[in-house]
């Protein structure tokens, strides 16, 4: 085993895949800058594009249909809204429309998430909005090993995948977007997420399998991405209060590993969903409904983003999932009061 940064691990897995499969190309905004090391090695397999999301994402779909395996990059998942038609009406539809004869092996790679003080148009995570459309998988790794393994898996898929890369986990994105080049700002960066052990040779991870990060007996916490690390920190606090939390890292939002969520909830009887996405009409409600359909008996709470993410850092921190909120909500779930 060796150690790598989160963004290094993704790039490393992509290199391994590109050497094995010459159908893989990379296209998107500023990829010549953001992937300069790949440009230096793979040259004409990297296609920088204008700022034309609707066009290059739509083109990525048919390039995939014609036999390539494009990794299409957006600066941020927020900008997918400019190209939402390509996702909702095309990437997810072609396979069914063609009588299941024509797949779209497309990987969309996009930074996501809040905590950089950038405001409500550049900090969303949006997986819930996209997840409601059948026909697309959504990955959200929380650490370098999962990031590399999931990227490799995404590149072996026959259907569209969105690979979300949380900005607080990527050293490069923190530098460019957060301005951590200045020493005067600090971000709440999860140290076990931004850097960690990775395998010597990448093996694809199974898409749709969650990981039990910590076993526990009193309540189940379900989350993904940076929120997983907030849960882990909260669990340390809760241990001191003799509350033992089991922490599940979803790793993939779609397909949702409901079997393993159900197994944990059967054991603990309590579930807290910690969701960086919007609380309403999203992941947290979906998990509740899926568990109820299985006629399980459990008590339930959720933490999610309820408003536009405020620009002001002091308001932002109150809006996004935090250790404080998780501890408080866990106590509520455990004792029935705060």
């Amino acid at each position: 085993m060796k150690r790598m940064n989160f963004d290094e691990a993704i790039e490393n897995a992509i290199i391994q895949a590109m050497l094995e499969d010459d159908r893989i190309i990379i296209m998107g905004e500023d990829v010549h800058t953001n992937r300069s090391a790949l440009v230096a090695r793979f040259s004409d397999r990297i296609f920088p594009t204008p700022i034309s999301e609707a066009s290059f994402l739509g083109a990525g779909i048919t390039a995939a249909m014609a036999g390539l395996k494009p990794i299409v990059e957006l600066w941020m998942i927020d900008f997918i809204c400019v190209a939402f038609d390509a996702i909702v009406n095309h990437a997810t539809k072609v396979y069914d429309f063609s009588g299941k004869r024509w797949g779209v092996p497309l990987v969309i790679r996009a930074p996501c998430g809040g905590g950089l003080g950038d405001g409500g148009q550049h900090e969303q995570i949006l997986y819930g909005s996209i997840a409601s459309i059948p026909g697309i998988k959504i990955l959200l790794p929380s650490n370098p090993a999962d990031a590399g393994g999931l990227m490799l898996a995404a590149l072996q898929e026959k259907h569209p995948v969105i690979f979300l890369e949380h900005k607080l986990l990527s050293e490069q994105l923190l530098y460019y977007l957060g301005g951590s080049g200045r020493n005067t700002v600090k971000f709440d960066v999860p140290e076990n997420g931004i850097e960690g052990e990775v395998p010597d040779h990448w093996v694809p991870l199974e898409i749709g399998k969650l990981k039990v990060l910590k076993e526990g007996t009193d309540l189940t916490m379900v989350s993904a991405g940076v929120a997983v690390h907030r849960c882990m920190d909260a669990a340390i606090e809760l241990e001191k209060q003799n509350i033992s939390a089991e922490i599940l890292d979803l790793r993939t939002i779609v397909p949702l590993d409901i079997d393993n969520i159900a197994a944990s909830v059967q054991k603990t009887g309590k579930i807290l969903i910690v969701d960086e996405d919007y609380k309403q009409f999203g992941l947290s409600g979906e998990i509740a409904a899926s568990l109820l359909e299985r006629k399980l008996n459990f008590t339930y709470q959720r933490i999610g983003t309820e408003t536009t993410i405020p620009f002001s850092p002091q308001l932002e921190v109150k809006t996004l999932p935090s250790v404080e909120k998780i501890v408080s909500m866990s106590q509520f779930l455990f004792y029935g009061s705060h």
């Binding site: 590109m18 050497l19 010549h32 800058t33 300069s36 090391a37 790949l38 440009v39 230096a40 090695r41 793979f42 040259s43 004409d44 397999r45 990297i46 530098y175």
Partner: peptide, 29 residues
Amino acid sequence: KKYGASITKSFLTPKGANLGKRIKSVGTI
């Protein structure tokens, strides 16, 4: 300083595009 080393390393690593294409790409950066 920050990314030069990784660009150079990547440039010099065998397998990938041919040398002519690589020189052109690094020149553009």
